[in-house]
């Protein structure tokens, strides 16, 4: 098997909120061209890892290295949130969808191309004076938006306000918007949450398409195991801020530690636990 090229390397990452150690000495790698899934029970610290990677939190300790295709390296923990996207080319979505609900679907995708258009418009001055470079860039940005509208199957709703879309479409739009920033690494925070099975399927299609067409590597947090096991190449499991398992989906699925984390304990021990709990409540009465 050929050695894999890591795009993102998380080394000894720790994040402390007061007395709570949300992430404790976490190290993992995400490989270029892979879909990496970050899973774990509620409160395991998955979203905190995301916020550290994308610059929204400053980690207490540790190093996050992003290596672009051209070989340029960025230490994400030192960059502020917008620089992580602008310079390091890491895009993200949010667990509770954050669209610009009063802007149209198309406008949402144009806002995502802000930095490119700012350059083309000479930081607004040339654009205001009507220079053709900006007009060309504006036309290109619409083409780019059209491409992603088509991918996300939203072309029919392009001129509707984003807040008017159904939930599943909003999820797809948020991913399309993140892709419009031209990222090399895409972080998705529970993209399948609240989707029905058909929408989940469409999401899988979209993510596979993103990987195969643009070569963008994906890191996703997900609870929906059908999505995780279906599309991810590599799974990292967190519990209480620590990594308990790391490997391909089959490996993780059969890891006793993962099963224990999700189900608590082995089946034959469950009865013991129930008996214990009942004994306690009985004593309290």
């Amino acid at each position: 098997m050929m050695t894999k090229d890591p795009i993102l390397k998380v080394d000894h990452l720790s994040m402390r909120f007061g007395g709570l150690m949300a992430i404790n000495d976490l190290s993992f790698e995400a490989y270029r061209g892979d879909i990496t899934a970050l899973i774990g029970p509620n409160g395991a610290g998955k979203t905190t890892v995301f916020n550290c990677i994308t610059g929204f939190y400053k980690p207490t300790m540790g190093m996050i290295t992003m290596r672009q295709k051209a070989g340029k390296e960025f230490l994400l923990e030192r960059m502020s949130d917008f620089e992580v996207n602008r310079d390091a080319k890491v895009a993200r979505t949010f667990q509770n969808i954050r669209l610009f609900s009063g802007l149209t679907v198309l406008e949402n995708l144009l806002v995502a191309q802000h930095n490119k258009l700012m350059m083309a418009s000479g930081y607004t001055v040339l654009g205001l004076l009507g220079f053709p470079t900006y007009k060309k860039a504006a036309a290109q940005s619409i083409e780019q938006a059209k491409y992603w509208l088509d991918k996300a199957n939203l072309t029919d709703r392009a001129d509707d306000p984003a807040g008017d879309l159904p939930y599943g479409a909003q999820r797809r739009l948020e991913i399309a918007r993140a892709m419009c920033t031209g990222p090399e690494f895409l972080c998705l925070d529970e993209p399948a949450a609240g989707l029905n099975p058909r929408e989940s399927l469409a999401l899988n299609e979209l993510l596979r398409g993103i990987r195969s067409d643009t070569g963008t590597s994906i890191l996703l947090i997900e609870h929906d195991m059908s999505v995780v096991m279906e599309i991810s190449d590599h799974v990292v499991v967190l519990e209480y801020g620590q990594k308990i398992s790391d490997g391909n989906p089959d490996h993780v699925k059969n890891d006793p530690k993962v099963i224990a984390a999700y189900l608590g304990v082995e089946d034959d021990e469950v009865e013991d636990v129930i008996a214990e709990v009942e004994g306690e409540t009985g004593g309290a009465h």
Binding site: D81, F82, F94, R98, L103, E107, V111, L117
Partner: peptide, 25 residues
């Protein structure tokens, strides 16, 4: 209709999302 104007309106709608898209708020 310029990127800066759209960024203003996006800022009004959701500042955090703006930052996640690489906009210097």
């Amino acid at each position: 209709r310029m990127p800066i104007g759209r960024a203003w309106e996006a800022l009004r709608e959701d500042e955090i999302a703006c930052r996640s898209l690489g906009i210097n708020t």
